[in-house]
Write a protein that binds this DNA or RNA. Structure first.
Lengths: 343, 343
DNA sequence: CTGTTAGCGCCTTCAA
DNA sequence: TTGAAGGCGCTAACAG
């Protein structure tokens, strides 16, 4: 099945030159006489030569590839970051190599090790479950860049967004529209982002004279199902509310379905805000107000930054801001129809 | 930044043995005296040795990796296939390496070439824009497996689903519920899947005595936006309809938003069917009736098949069926309220 | 400009 | 059981 692939030696013989000449002609490393160059090219063509990348890397020390390790390569949250990276690298000499860490230390460690042992020229982490110290250790073996964490000692290579402010803005948006009884469906306890968003929510409430009501705080796992269940329970409960701030878009979708099933309209009865602005969120019915993480731009910037570091230029990583995108899922509280609060 | 990594030579020196002994002790390739083995292990540990995978592959010829090239690695359609592959490979000695072809010949060719030149032990294509002949050529260089295409000559390594039958079933589902004026939003002309689904739709209509109405056929690009626009135009047009069969879930979501904006209820006024059953589709409001592609299982099966071929065992690829998943977006046509048809 | 010659880090005979 | 030595395929000095 696998044809033994042709090597540079055979090309050299075919072209009647030495292997170094072939190498030079191929890579433009040095000038080669016109006729020999043509002979080499012809031989290359005739034999269908494809250089063995491994061998090349072994000698040159550069693999022309950048490893990208995401917590989960297929999560919609990382989708646009990955897309941004892909596009930024598309017409460069570097190839991205993607892999998942599956939110699991052991798998992440292993993935990092294989990536390093495959000699990627740089490593980009989209989220990480490793400790700061471990990451610093990794950074000694390979140029490391991380998104979603601010690793002390590696600040120049880290890009994190202010989740607190994003959540603060989202909550304030609801407060400005008259909401005071605002549910928050938070993400998993263990995750820093979930924690930051919760604090942003609480701070916004307090800054506006609202005491956070623990009965309006429920926990999900960043997926639709748990939010659906939590919201259903909330609706069936006794505590009135007029708005829901979900810890991410997927949970907002789950909440929205629960509302729908209970005959509650969005935004007429309950306003709903998500977080992330995933691809597709603009097309929910109604389109969801959410906090946009500029993930595509981040992916691009990250890749561009990696490239420039690889070329020896030290460009600083740009700053990115979270933005509340107001769409149709949030409305002013109608005094006459306070929705759930009035039942 | 990059510490020169320790090589097998240093380990050998440290352990006071030859490099061959280190190699053997590490890989269990041959018996090594107990004391030397321990010395090697200690040295390995002390130096934090990590074998250079490239060098290893160069000599052994096996990279212990399988390349996975998807048209688009971040498309939700491939998400579950990829997830299935990842999970199936997770605790094996093989590592998947993912990459995108971007629906573009040139990029796909290049990605395939780099994957081959990195000596992946097998190559899995999730969709492909290359010709059958080109794929056969690739198959001569590396064990090739493809999902979504039936390549003549490579049938044993191909896995494709019967899109025609899926679309047929979806359309019949609507017909059985009394619908006759059924819109179809087809995917791009160039794509075989879109073509097959269209034919399934038309066949189901004809088999049930309905002549396909060209005015009810519109074209999208498998994304939300175009379906949204097409549906809006349709609603504003003069041709009555009671149901929409979208070429995929994303277009169904677009259509659903258009209906929502026009005040049309799903399924009360218009029934809606999608295709794919993407992750998340079960949580749209209302949950979408759709045709399920068992993508996760396919990913797993594909990976398992690749593994067994790599081990020299010839297991046949299992067959998979498309299934109509009936959820809440489709209902019987109410004679009294034929929805749009009655305006 | 071009050919020869060392390696790159590892595995694997081949002798011992 | 172990070490020496020869590649794997390619790049990069080093002489011409």
């Amino acid at each position: 099945m696998r044809k033994r692939s042709v090597t540079i030696n055979e090309v050299a013989r075919e072209a009647g030159v030495s292997i170094s000449t072939v190498s030079r002609a191929m890579n433009g490393t040095a000038f080669v006489a016109e006729d020999k160059r043509r002979a080499v090219e012809a031989a290359l063509e005739r034999l269908g030569f494809q250089p063995n990348h491994l061998a090349r890397t072994l000698t040159s020390g550069r693999s022309m590839s950048v490893g990208v390790l995401a917590e989960d390569i297929v999560s919609p949250y990382y989708a646009d970051v990955i897309r941004g990276i892909e596009h930024a690298l598309l017409d460069t000499a570097y190839q991205p190599v993607f892999n998942s860490g599956h939110w699991t230390r052991a798998y992440e460690r292993r993935a990092i090790d294989t990536l390093i042992s495959r000699r990627v020229d740089a490593l980009v982490l989209l989220g990480s479950t490793l400790s700061d110290a471990e990451l610093r250790e990794v950074a000694e073996q390979v140029p490391l860049f991380v998104f979603g964490r601010l690793v002390p000692g590696l600040e120049d290579h880290c890009l994190a967004l202010d989740q607190f402010r994003g959540a603060y803005g989202a909550t304030r948006h609801l407060i400005e529209r008259g909401h005071r009884d605002i549910v928050h469906i938070r993400g998993p306890e263990a995750q820093q982002d979930a924690e930051d968003r919760l604090r942003g929510y609480q701070a916004a409430l307090r800054d506006n004279g609202v005491t956070p009501d623990p009965r309006l705080l429920v926990t999900g796992d960043f997926l639709e199902q748990t939010a659906y269940q939590a919201t259903t329970r909330l609706i069936e409960g006794l505590v009135p509310f007029t708005a829901i701030f979900a810890g991410n878009d997927q949970m907002a979708v789950g909440a929205r379905l629960a509302l729908y099933r209970k005959g509650l309209r969005v935004p007429d009865d309950v306003s709903l805000v998500g977080f992330d602005d995933l691809p597709g969120t603009a097309f929910t019915s109604p389109p969801l107000t959410t906090v946009q993480q500029p993930t595509y731009a981040i992916g691009q910037a990250l890749a561009a930054h990696v490239l420039s570091r690889l070329e020896g230029v030290a460009s600083p990583l740009p700053q990115f801001e979270l933005r509340v995108i107001v769409r149709d899922s949030t409305a002013r509280v109608l005094r006459g129809f306070p929705g759930v609060a009035a039942r």
